[in-house]
Computed example of a mutant assay.
Amino acid sequence: MSKPAQSFMDPLVAAVVPRLTGDSALTTLLGGSGRVYNRVPKNAATPYIRVSVNTERAWNWIGGQRGSTVVLQTQIASRYAGELETSQVVSRLRALLDGWRTTLTGATHRSELAFDQALPGFDEDVDGVVVTYRTVLWTTAVV
């Protein structure tokens, strides 16, 4: 029986959250510490950032190479009138994550986040922006 494929969803979120919470400029823009979440508590104060994995797609290449393409999603929530607050947070988020490299357990190569897109909108009660990143992770050596 073959070994099940490793998921990078939780390790990627676990690496990104401290990257964001450890930045004093982002903490100031968010109005204080403790406003970066994976699971947002009910009645959380805004602004805040939710970090999650949107999709993970496994792939196999000829020659035995295996890995995953992972889409990381950050949601910036705000109740501020206008786009100034979210645009400032997006700018700082991009400064922290665009091209950021980290090593995840089980990956044979460092992960580098590549900016994918930023889309306005969130839900009926909260304004915001959804920013996504892509990364490719290998679980076997690249030949």
Rank of each mutant, 00 (worst) to 15 (best):
127 D>S: 15
73 Q>D: 04
11 P>F: 04
13 V>C: 11
106 G>K: 11
17 V>N: 00
113 L>P: 06
81 A>P: 09
115 F>V: 13
84 L>Y: 12
24 S>L: 14
113 L>I: 08
66 R>P: 00
21 T>K: 10
22 G>N: 06
12 L>A: 05
135 T>Y: 05
110 R>C: 07
28 T>Y: 05
124 E>L: 10
14 A>Y: 02
75 Q>H: 12
106 G>T: 11
110 R>G: 15
138 W>Y: 11
46 T>V: 10
20 L>G: 07
85 E>Y: 03
111 S>M: 07
24 S>Q: 15
48 Y>I: 02
22 G>F: 04
96 L>C: 08
62 I>P: 02
66 R>I: 05
14 A>E: 08
85 E>F: 03
140 T>Y: 00
100 W>F: 10
19 R>Q: 13
79 R>N: 15
121 G>Y: 08
46 T>L: 09
20 L>M: 07
10 D>Q: 10
96 L>G: 03
66 R>M: 09
13 V>Q: 11
68 S>F: 01
121 G>F: 11
23 D>T: 13
31 G>I: 08
88 Q>I: 05
137 L>I: 10
142 V>E: 03
117 Q>C: 06
18 P>N: 01
69 T>M: 01
51 V>L: 00
63 G>S: 01
83 E>M: 12
76 I>Y: 03
69 T>Q: 14
70 V>T: 06
55 T>N: 13
7 S>A: 07
36 V>L: 06
95 A>I: 07
120 P>S: 09
64 G>L: 01
127 D>I: 03
34 G>F: 09
29 L>N: 04
73 Q>N: 11
53 V>A: 01
95 A>N: 13
134 R>N: 14
86 T>A: 15
23 D>Q: 08
114 A>L: 09
42 K>H: 01
26 L>R: 04
86 T>G: 12
131 V>R: 02
106 G>L: 12
38 N>M: 12
94 R>D: 10
43 N>S: 13
88 Q>E: 15
74 T>H: 04
85 E>W: 01
113 L>E: 04
133 Y>D: 03
10 D>R: 12
26 L>Y: 09
31 G>T: 08
96 L>R: 05
41 P>M: 01
114 A>R: 11
63 G>T: 05
87 S>R: 15
118 A>L: 05
45 A>F: 03
27 T>C: 08
47 P>Q: 07
83 E>G: 08
85 E>H: 03
101 R>M: 13
116 D>N: 15
24 S>K: 15
11 P>M: 05
92 R>L: 12
55 T>L: 06
79 R>P: 01
118 A>H: 06
133 Y>T: 02
116 D>E: 15
64 G>I: 06
38 N>Y: 12
11 P>W: 06
5 A>S: 07
21 T>S: 15
116 D>T: 07
11 P>I: 00
76 I>D: 01
37 Y>K: 11
61 W>L: 12
80 Y>H: 15
132 T>D: 04
135 T>P: 00
75 Q>N: 14
120 P>L: 06
124 E>R: 14
34 G>C: 10
75 Q>W: 09
35 R>M: 02
108 T>E: 02
13 V>A: 10
71 V>Y: 05
4 P>Y: 07
32 G>F: 08
111 S>A: 15
3 K>D: 14
125 D>H: 14
114 A>V: 13
135 T>R: 02
97 L>T: 03
